[in-house]
Design a protein around this nucleic acid. Sequence first.
DNA 1: CCCTGATTCGC
DNA 2: GCGAATCAGG
Length: 175
Amino acid sequence: MSWTNERVELLKKLWSDGLSASQIAGELGGVTRNAVIGKVHRLGLSGRAKTASNPSKQRRARPNAPAGTSAPKKPAAQPQSIGATALKADYAPAPVAEAKPEPIAELVPISQRATILTLTERTCKWPIGDPATDDFYFCGRQSDAGVPYCAHHCKIAYQPVADRRRDRKVIAQAS
DNA sequence: CCCTGATTCGC
DNA sequence: GCGAATCAGG
C-alpha cells in the first residue's frame, strides 16, 4: 500500500484524534505502526503534546547495518478468536439491573480504545457502545493474563456485587 | 511481558 | 520517501 492523499488525510485525522500509531495502522491496513510513525514524522505533525521526555538522552539506535541481506519477515500475528473464547463463563458479567447507562465509556481515553482489529490476547475486551453503529469499540486497556478484562473499571463489572462495591471504593480513592 | 512514540539509515 | 530495526520509556 502507498500513502495516497486519502490515506494521509485519514492518518492526520486519527492522529489528531489521539489514536495510537498501532491503532491507526490497524484502521488503515497494509501498514505497520512503524510506517505510521515514520509518516507522522515526515509530515511534521509529531509531538502530540504530552511526553516532555528528557532531552538529555538522545537517540542512538541502530548502531550499524541490518546485518546481512537475509530478509527477516514476520507474518504479522492476527488477533485470533476474540469472540468465542474471550469471554469465559467464569467471568460472565453480573446482572446490571442498576441504572448505570455507560459510565465506562467516559472513563476510557480515546487513545486507549480498541476496535475489533486492534484487540490482542492481552487487551481488555469489555464492549462499549452499540455494535450496530459506528460508535462501538472495546476498552482496550491492558488486561491481566488469562482474563478478558483490565484491572480497572471493567474488572468491577465482572465481579460479584460485594466485590464491586469494595473495588469501586479503592479506585475512587486512587483517582 | 504488554505497550507507547522517536530515531536511524538501508533501500 | 519509505519503514524495519532499534531505542527509551510507561
